[in-house]
């Protein structure tokens, strides 16, 4: 029995489509439709076509402030996870000679992820609090006389929790692309008199670019789409884009929440496509 080529193609992608259409495309469409409706203020949607929800979202100083806060956390988290992730991966790939040991250490990096990320986040609280371990220790050795309050319920605490949660998302893809760097290239560079810094700059970083890009996509999209860490670790003293439209939902303002969600989706898509322009992911995956 012969099946026509296009049909085979469709069959190949059908499992993916079966998942994507009901669980991604349809919900997004519902959100899109809701975003141009009006609300009666009691959770009811009035089917019309209005851009007022978008106008309100896009012209509000609140939106700007929320994005400023969220992008601030995203950039800080991205920066620190990148530094940590890059050097951990570098150590595992280039300094641990025994591949078995490297895999073992790599697995150890994932140990914190055996518990829920909420528990991992909350466990910082007794450490960072006014009467927490760090403050008590510093007070006892006499380095400070008043507890440091910036440690908890602050932007600092938010970034600490995010970095702790998300560094693994940098390590994995960077480790993956570094592991594929042909060691002979590095040796050749050493023989040709390249310094460690040159090797890093001219070989390791360029060849890890796709891993860095993938890790950046993970980290940025998770932070941009999260509200819980910000809410808990800032002690409610900061807000996030998602947190704000969750509040909209709590007072049944579905259309404005939907419009905010669409705006966030568009911004994230733009961000991801910008990152993807710097690397050829397709090449990376099929290699």
């Amino acid at each position: 029995m012969t099946v026509s080529r296009p049909l085979v193609g469709w069959l190949y992608i059908s499992p993916l489509m079966l998942v994507l259409i009901p669980f991604f495309v349809l919900p997004i469409l519902v959100v899109l439709v809701a975003s141009v409706f009006e609300t009666d203020g009691f959770g009811g949607l009035i089917p019309t076509f209005t851009l007022a929800n978008y106008r309100n979202v896009l012209t509000s100083a609140l939106t700007f402030n929320l994005y400023y806060e969220t992008v601030k956390f995203t950039v800080l988290t991205w920066f620190f996870t990148l530094i940590l992730g890059f050097f951990i991966a570098y150590f595992l790939v280039f300094h641990v000679r025994n591949p078995l040991l490297a895999i073992g250490l790599f697995l150890i990096c994932t140990v914190p992820f055996w518990t829920s990320n909420i528990i991992r986040m909350i466990s910082w609280i007794p450490l960072l609090g006014k009467e927490g371990l760090i403050n008590s220790a510093l007070l006892r050795i006499g380095l400070i006389h008043e507890p440091l309050t910036f440690l908890l319920y602050s932007s600092f605490a938010v970034v600490v929790a995010y970095v702790h949660q998300l560094t693994i998302f940098m390590i994995v893809p960077i480790f993956n692309s570094m592991a594929r760097i042909d060691k002979r290239v590095v040796e050749a560079a050493v023989d040709a008199g390249a310094s460690r810094f040159d090797i890093m700059r001219l070989i390791v970083v360029p060849l890890s670019k796709s891993g860095i890009a993938l890790g950046s996509i993970f980290v940025a999209s998770i932070v941009m789409g999260d509200f819980f860490v910000t809410k808990v670790m800032s002690g409610g003293s900061s807000a996030s884009v998602v947190g704000a439209f969750y509040e909209d939902i709590s007072v049944l303002q579905y259309p404005s929440a939907a419009a905010s969600a669409v705006v966030l989706t568009v911004i994230l898509l733009a961000m991801v496509s910008l990152i993807l322009r710097t690397v050829d992911i397709r090449k990376e995956i099929t290699q």
Binding site: A239, E247, S250
Partner: peptide
Amino acid sequence: TLMDESAYMNKRWNDFKVA
């Protein structure tokens, strides 16, 4: 309660949160 101006109130409350 939930105020008549809850949508507006919510927005202003978020101003407070993000300030």
